[in-house]
Design a protein around this nucleic acid. Structure first.
Lengths: 104, 104
DNA sequence: ACAATACATAAGCACAAACTTATGTGTTGG
DNA sequence: CCAACACATAAGTTTGTGCTTATGTATTGT
């Protein structure tokens, strides 16, 4: 997979919202549609893009398919971002806080 | 600016390459074209997109315009990523290394 | 078994985005 | 001052992407 594909997946505003909803907790495709004016096939297609990018993963449960954030996708972004640490200004303390949390 | 715009800027493979070239060091628009089969206006337009996304910044120097990575764009991505730290697997040690570097 | 439900896939359409050529705007050396 | 250079902007064309409707595939409850 081309490296920019993970960014392409998040570039669409609708998919970005879907990802944020999933970040709040696992959800099936129908539940994800609530609050969004989006057809069922459109949701299905968006979820396929996010899944192919490694940002979400699915787990079938009966007739429902639950989706959840795939840590692998976030890890890829984290690794990408880490390459450019030379450019981070010292005032970017969000990462410092984050790392402290992970160290715990 | 919509949050997903920064991802849209990196979603295009050509812009992704341009950004990576700039990560290696500041460069003017003509120098950036070397090695890429891309017209001068296309490069100019790509740089405008990256600049509007806050990923690069420009500094005119005579007739040349030097471009360089804008830390603010990376900081935005870092902050975005930090929101999802709950999902990071412990094996993602890239960030740990990164944070250690920043602590130094 | 079958109707209903949940989701995926196919095909086609409409709009957005990336490219092109042409031209405009600054800046510099002679 | 003006020709050459570096880059930006305009306008038009093509390709890609996200949407739709229609249909297919699983799974469940009765």
């Amino acid at each position: 997979m081309i490296e920019s594909d993970i960014f392409k997946a998040l570039a669409d505003p609708t998919r970005y919202v879907i990802f944020e909803k999933l970040a709040a907790g696992r959800m099936n495709a129908s539940a994800l549609r609530e609050g969004l004016t989006i057809s069922q096939p459109a949701m299905s297609q968006h979820l396929a893009v996010l899944r192919n990018a490694g940002l979400v993963r699915e787990e079938r449960q009966g007739r429902f398919v639950n989706y959840e954030v795939d840590p692998d996708g976030l890890a890829r972004i984290a690794r990408w971002l880490a390459k450019y640490r030379a450019y981070w200004p010292s005032r970017v303390d969000a990462l410092k806080t984050l790392l402290k949390d992970m160290d715990q």
